[in-house]
Amino acid sequence: MKIFLSFLALTLPMTGAIASDVALESTVLVERSEQMPDGTVSMTLEEPARVVPGDNLLFVLDYHNEGAEPAENFRVVNPLPDAVAFRDTNDAGAEFSVDGGEHWGALSALTITGEDGAVRPATNEDVTHVRWILDRAIPAGGEGRITFRGTVR
C-alpha cells in the first residue's frame, strides 16, 4: 500500500499517552523510486514492512500537545537503530551524539577516537543519537513535526 506524505497527517492515528498531555508519534517511511512509462522517475514514500540495505528511510516524529497547558522545555531524542546510518535532517537545530548519548553537539564538532588512539572527525555514519530541543513552549493544542533521514546499512 502506498501512502503519499501529504495524506499522512490525516491518515495516521494519533496515539495519546495516558499519563501525559503530549503525544509523540513515530513513523518510518521508505523512499521508493519507480521508473514511469514516460521515462521519468517517480519518487514515492511508502510505509514499509520490509526494507533492503541501501533503502532511504524518512523518520517522521509528530508531536501534539493535547493538554490544556503549554509544554515547556520540550526535547525529543531518537536513538538510531544499529542498522541505520544517519543521512540528514530538515532541522538545523538538531544536535548529535556519536557515543551513545553521552556527549552532544553539532556533528562537525564531534570526533571519533579509533582503537589505535587516532582521532578523526565524526561523520554521518557515526551518529548514534539525534535530539531536538525546542526553543519555545508547545502551546495547548499545538503540534509539530520533525523529520530526519537515514539509510539502511
Partner: peptide, 14 residues
C-alpha cells in the same frame, strides 16, 4: 534483522 525505531521526549508539564 529487525530495525526498531522508538523516539522519546521530555518536557516540563503543569
Amino acid at each position: 534483522t529487525t530495525i526498531e525505531n522508538t523516539a522519546s521526549a521530555s518536557y516540563d508539564g503543569p
